[in-house]
Design a protein around this nucleic acid. Structure first.
Lengths: 343, 343
DNA sequence: TTGTATGCGTTATCAG
DNA sequence: CTGATAACGCATACAA
């Protein structure tokens, strides 16, 4: 009681225990060169006086912050929430703090965010790029200072960074092949216009599957939009007006797939009989839409955990060389009613 | 080029400009007592040398961090993502950093998180409480140190804190009354067992509406669960077996409402003809479920913005007295097909 | 096992 | 308008 006045420091403890501040500092850190006895005295007093170490002083001294920066395009998607949730979990356990910011799909803001993170002296950075980010040079400053940067989901082409992702191409191929196996002959693909790996790769997988089935790619069957809920409705119109109408649609994300399905259903088109659907992400809505949406499971929580675990283990292993590598996570096709045309 | 070696400090700038470090410091801060000319020289050199101020040294000196802590039950719900998104937006603009942690609905973890935030010397704290938090004494240390704490959504009873919420009671009453107006006579209520304001208040609103309609409260019509997606399915079973079956259900959250509707539909029960539904939150799934779910709009993004704006303006207005107040946001009933029985 | 001395980079106070 | 100097609280190299 009564100790809420002034912040207490190691000097206060030292004075009271009649030892040096250096010893207190060491004792608090559990340094083995401090006798067990004094160590206990120090800890006891610290506790009773409500001592808390001053992170600034410590960081100023040690030149690192125990803080990890995270930059994502948007916070408010189920996938991203799950990612952040996973990251937070392992970071907290390891005693690291997270500072999070969103680029809102805007490179300019992404650059500003990166600069802020840099000035805040984050120990490491976890990034998923904005839609329109066509370069990643604003992360080079981190490399120069040997601050590790790991990209996930939306990653740059550059070889200089570590990346965590799923095999988008393979998964997309799998989804498309599944539609083909269900008898679809004319499959549309809804995706985002973007240089980002994820969408380009999914498109490639779509093409691969067509190719394997001996079907020639038809660019008229590709719908580009921003994959939002609203965009899905509009896409439904486009698809309905294609002549002949496609008998299957592979959408690069569940959100958009779902609203597109709703638009089609309102127009009296039956799913999967008239058009079969497959999405991407395994967002919770995929289990609410009727019929339930066939999709690719994209394990956000696990990706978050993995990315953070990697970063931290790198940070702890005082290795000075930056090993860059690419980690590919498993992601499987989840078949649901929206694509089942054969019994 | 070539300046990626050692971090450059105000001393380096001072030496090069042949002035004192103190002047450099002042110049960098735009202090008016520095001549315009030297100010320009300082800033130019700082820029060209890639100088960045050391936050630790500055914070150590100034005794505050420009960091705001956020503690929430879970990150991965649409509502919470929206809240965080709003907070991040205004914090970044105001030059504050966010550190975020989740209690996972567990008071013990919540306490640990609070302690971490405290030790990290956050300038302020934004909190939404865990389910089972029956006390908020672990936030008293912040009060003692005059660190402002603002609660949102899940708030404590204590009068000592500022709170931001919607009028849960009124909204719940409105939703229930709407069901009554649609001809429902026997309305079930699905909610969480919790001392938390939100659920208690919604229950109260439910009772209010019944009361106004001259219907006596029947505790057999109350289903307690954790409001998860899975719990909704189970609730569907319970509701179906009530005898006579309810003709309306008011659920304390959309997620659970949606899965409950799905369970009922699978059992051949028609919505809204046999049972009308109303949820709470205006989660995106409410627009995907068929029929679309009537719900209460809970503006997460705006709540996040408001909470952060309040905190920051308090921080900036060097007022030492903690003014505690309660801010109630508007939240309206959104009527959709799940409850429309009259044409 | 412990103590002394010093520096980490800023900012604030006080003189000039 | 500018400079010298003293903190801020901690961790470590070096001595003892």
């Amino acid at each position: 009681m009564g100790n809420e006045e002034k912040e207490i420091t190691i000097y206060d403890l030292a004075r009271e225990l009649d030892i040096s501040a250096a010893t207190v500092s060491r004792g608090l850190q559990g340094h083995p060169t401090v006798s067990k006895k004094t160590r206990k005295r120090i800890n006891d007093l610290a506790l009773s006086k409500g001592y808390r170490s001053n992170h600034f002083a410590r960081n100023l001294r040690r030149q690192h912050t125990h803080t990890i920066g995270v930059i994502v395009p948007r916070l408010n998607s189920y996938f991203m929430s799950a990612v952040i949730s996973g990251m937070e979990n392992v970071a907290t356990k390891a005693g690291f703090n997270l500072i999070i910011s969103q680029s809102l799909e805007n490179v300019t803001k992404e650059k500003a965010n990166a600069a802020t993170m840099f000035n805040n002296r984050v120990d490491g950075l976890l990034v998923s790029l904005a839609y329109d980010a066509d370069e990643s040079r604003h992360f080079d400053i981190f490399l120069q200072k040997k601050i590790p940067v790991i990209f996930f989901d939306r990653v740059p082409d550059s070889e200089h960074f570590t990346k965590i992702l799923i095999d988008n191409r393979k998964s997309a191929k799998e989804a498309t092949r599944h539609l083909l196996e269900q008898g679809c002959k004319r499959i549309a693909h809804i995706t985002a216009i973007s240089k980002r790996n994820v969408y380009a790769d999914r498109m490639q997988g779509y093409k691969d599957a067509l190719n394997d089935a001996g079907i020639t790619f038809n660019k008229d069957l590709i719908v580009y939009n921003n994959l939002s809920y609203d965009a899905g409705y509009e896409a439904a119109d486009l698809i309905r007006k294609l002549n002949p109408m496609p008998d299957g649609v592979f959408v690069a994300n569940d959100n958009c797939a779902v609203s597109c399905m709703m638009g089609l259903k309102e127009a009296g088109i039956r799913i999967p009989q008239d058009i079969a659907f497959a999405g991407f992400n395994n967002d919770p809505v995929s289990k609410v839409i009727e019929p339930n949406l066939t999709t690719i499971n994209y394990p956000g929580y696990e990706i978050g955990e993995l990315a953070m675990r990697n970063l931290i283990s790198y940070l702890n292993s005082d290795s000075t060389t930056t090993v860059t590598n690419t980690i590919t996570m498993r992601s499987e096709l989840i078949i649901r009613a929206s694509s089942l045309r054969k019994s």
